[in-house]
């Protein structure tokens, strides 16, 4: 495959936590503009997988390449990869001592050294995109869970990443707020953003994903298009998993 169209490339990636083998020989390629959903039972390693992509966890075997940059012991590789990726966490991880606007402008001002006024313009643009510009001067504690997660999405977008990583973005939300976040993510996908999303929301996978990856016990068990994945699962474990959640 031509490297220039590959956003993420994992070859034989391994990870241990102590003696526990969390990721076993992961081989995955994500093309630019592709939307990939990763699902699987708890403990299957899907969060570990996505956290290895932007080096929040360090992989211990095999190769990982993001946008042509290989992730190794060189600190510069980590910095470059983190500039290209944006991450949205299960528990939002907004900075509680800063306002919504300050949350979004912090990284552009201090990392990209953009002027404050310009950073605020960018931030307001993305806050409008996630449909909460009126809360710009509030503190995270004053917003609902769904609003906080949308702020988190805007915050990640303000750094202009080419790849967005979502680590179970709706798992910590009350049911009535899940839809607003999923709609935001779907509109992002509609704009052509490369996305890797760990989620249990199968409706989202069916309608938005280009491919669905099923993981179990640290291994990738099955990868397929959503149609094929949900109607004709090929592995026993996939079938067992789908039976439990659908």
């Amino acid at each position: 495959m031509d490297v220039s169209t590959q956003a993420i490339q994992m070859k034989g990636m391994e990870k241990w936590y102590g003696s526990y083998h969390a990721l076993r020989g992961i081989n995955l390629e994500v093309s630019r503009g592709e939307r990939v959903v990763v699902c699987g039972p708890s403990g299957s390693g899907k969060s570990t997988l996505i956290q290895c992509i932007n080096a929040l966890e360090r992989h211990e075997g095999g190769n990982l390449t993001v946008n042509g940059v290989e992730l190794n012991n060189d600190i510069r590789s980590v910095e470059e990869i983190r500039r290209e990726t944006g991450m949205v966490f299960q528990h939002f991880n907004l900075f509680p001592h800063l306002t919504v606007l300050e949350n979004c402008t912090l990284a552009p001002i201090w990392v990209k050294r953009i002027r404050r006024a310009e950073a605020e313009d960018i931030a307001m643009h993305y806050l409008k995109r996630v449909k909460i510009p009126e809360h710009a001067n509030k503190y995270p504690g004053q917003l609902s869970g769904g609003q906080q997660q949308r702020v988190a999405i805007a915050r990640a977008l303000c750094m202009n990443p080419s790849i967005m990583l979502f680590d179970e973005p709706t798992s910590a939300l009350d049911p009535e707020m899940v839809k607003e976040v999923l709609d935001t993510m779907a509109s992002l996908a509609g704009d052509g953003m490369t996305m890797v999303c760990v989620t249990h929301e199968m409706g989202f996978a069916r309608h938005v994903a280009d491919r669905v990856v099923f993981m179990d016990e640290g291994q990738i068990v099955e990868i397929n298009t959503p149609d094929q994945f949900f109607s004709r699962p090929q592995h026993d474990r996939t079938r067992a998993f789908l039976e439990k959640i659908l």
Binding site: L56, N93, H97
Partner: peptide
Amino acid sequence: GQVEAAKALSLSWAQTILLIILPQ
């Protein structure tokens, strides 16, 4: 999660400590 978010935003170690960790 605060440190993770700061890392994901590409903040350097010093920036994370001064802007995110210490104030809180």
